[in-house]
Amino acid sequence: MDPLPLKSDFLFRMELTVEGTLLGATPVGERRVGLVTGGRFHGPAASGVVLPGGADWMLTGSDGATRLDVRAMLRAEDGQLIGITYTGLRAGPPEVLARMAAGEVVDPATYYMRTAIRFETAPGPLDWLNKVLAVAIGQRPPQGPIYDVYAVL
């Protein structure tokens, strides 16, 4: 039997502003927490703002890859609140990751940044998101992460 094709629909681009806090070396790796201070999202499925108060608990392992573990809150233009939870991975050549850590602009084609996303919202025009698994292709410019979010069909 042939594999089923992977299909997706673009939902929106999400741009976050974050402040970083370094916890340092822990028993499981180097832990950093990026506090979400705001942002926006815009696209064919929904548009609005990213509310302050979320966080990304990043863990960088001995392999140099960073595991992302994020919870944040979005508010659509119509006022509907959307919880977003995602885990992901950012990896690349050590010299590229070092430049990124130093705050340099780095070509997103030189590293890998992908996430798996779940949404949670109350009844309303966007409650269909509760039944969607999404994936995102990310990039990490100095001003904060950007994700192009796609529903997996």
Rank of each mutant, 00 (worst) to 15 (best):
A46I: 06
G24M: 00
A151N: 04
P5R: 13
R31P: 06
S62H: 11
L89A: 01
P3T: 08
A65C: 03
W128P: 05
A91W: 05
S8A: 15
R90E: 07
P27F: 04
A55K: 00
G88S: 03
M58Y: 02
D148K: 01
T60P: 07
G61W: 07
L129M: 08
S47M: 09
V135I: 13
G20T: 11
P145E: 09
A65G: 07
R13I: 09
L89R: 10
R99D: 04
R75W: 12
M14W: 13
L11G: 02
G53H: 09
T17V: 12
A122G: 12
R13H: 03
I146G: 08
G20M: 12
L68T: 10
G20F: 03
L4K: 13
W57Q: 06
P27A: 04
L16P: 01
Y147V: 09
P27R: 06
G103F: 12
A25N: 14
V70G: 01
L4D: 09
L51E: 13
Q80A: 00
Y111N: 02
L126F: 08
A134G: 09
V152N: 05
G34Y: 14
E19V: 12
G48E: 02
R75Q: 15
R67G: 05
L97N: 09
A91S: 14
E15W: 00
P3R: 12
D127Y: 03
M58C: 11
T110R: 01
M73L: 15
M113S: 13
K131D: 15
L68K: 10
P141V: 00
Y147W: 11
M100D: 12
V49P: 05
P44F: 08
A151V: 06
V33E: 05
M14F: 10
G43H: 04
A55Q: 03
I84W: 07
G64V: 02
E19L: 02
L133F: 13
R90Q: 10
D107H: 11
A116R: 13
G43N: 03
T115C: 05
P141K: 01
I84D: 03
V135E: 11
W57R: 12
G61Y: 06
P5K: 07
